[in-house]
Amino acid sequence: MSEIQYLWAPSPVYSLPVRGTGVRFPVRRIFCVGRNYHAHAVEMGRPVDKATMSPFYFLKDASTVVDSGATVPYPAGTSNYHFEMELVVAIGKAGFRVAEADADELIYGYAAGLDMTRRDLQLVAREQGRPWDLGKNFEKSAVCTEIVPAAGQAVLDKGAIHLEVNGETKQRADLSMLIWNIREIIADLSKFYHLEAGDLIYTGTPEGVGAVKPGDRITGHVDGVGDIVLNIGQPE
């Protein structure tokens, strides 16, 4: 069989390091959970009633991934560039219509992540009933640490999560405050998608999101997972 010829080189495989190994985790898709902490939902002007509402999601391309510790340019088209600190779940096994009780079987590991957001563009889209892509799905907007293998540990349901900008605390909460927990998120997503190894799930951000500017340094932490760093560079 002849080798397939492409017009140009295919896109690279985007990946993240795996703690304690020499291999990398290939990223397939990035699912993000919107408004999954009550206080953040309130600060965004959209309170959540879990009894009557379901989780909602938006996606980022795998190409938006950037390793923790990077310096990224202040993005084009915005004057309100926000941080959102999150626990990230790394999927390591395929699953479709998964029961909550079995959801942990799909988890390969965890990471700390930043869902960087062009907030002004997101809010314009939200108010006009348009997709959020310009505000959320842009280059270098999915910052992530190395993947920490779960290795049979219990599903993370508690632990501090916090973020600082230039050493000043901006976000502080606990994973127990998630509206929809990890098992519930995996079970719900798997009703709509065939989850596959390589998928990442950004589980939502606590209250305290805010803007950064060139020269700022973001640091964050998730208990049991690790620390994340991002430096904001000058616009291109």
Rank of each mutant, 00 (worst) to 15 (best):
G20C: 03
G45F: 04
V212F: 03
L16K: 02
D67Y: 11
L200S: 04
M53R: 13
L178E: 04
V88E: 01
A142T: 06
S68K: 07
K60N: 06
D174W: 09
E100A: 11
G20S: 04
G233S: 02
E3F: 14
L123I: 13
H221K: 10
L178H: 01
S141Q: 06
D223E: 15
T203E: 03
I201N: 00
H194Q: 14
I107K: 00
G135F: 00
E100N: 02
R24P: 05
G95S: 07
A9K: 14
R24K: 15
G159R: 04
P73G: 05
N181E: 09
K170F: 07
L59S: 11
R19A: 15
D104Q: 05
F25K: 06
I91F: 05
V148C: 00
G77K: 13
G22M: 13
S68N: 12
H221M: 12
V155I: 12
Y57M: 11
I147K: 01
V72H: 03
L175Q: 12
K213E: 13
R126E: 11
P47I: 08
I179Q: 02
L178M: 13
L121Q: 06
I201H: 01
D61T: 11
A211W: 03
S54I: 12
M85W: 08
D120W: 04
W8N: 14
A94W: 03
R172H: 15
K60C: 05
V66L: 07
G45C: 04
G198R: 03
V42K: 13
S190M: 12
D49Y: 10
S54A: 15
E86A: 03
V155W: 00
V42G: 05
K136W: 05
L156A: 06
A41L: 05
Y108V: 03
V23P: 00
L16Q: 05
E127M: 12
V48P: 02
A151W: 00
R28G: 14
K60A: 07
G45M: 04
K50Y: 10
M85V: 15
R126H: 10
T78C: 01
G224C: 08
L163E: 06
A70H: 12
Q128K: 15
D133R: 05
W180M: 08
C144H: 01
L200I: 08
W8A: 14
Y14E: 11
V89E: 03
R28P: 12
G34E: 07
L123S: 13
E100M: 09
T21D: 02
G135M: 01
V72K: 02
A70G: 10
R119I: 01
I182C: 15
G220R: 03
L178D: 01
L163C: 12
E196A: 11
I107Q: 00
A39T: 14
R126I: 09
W180K: 05
G34H: 05
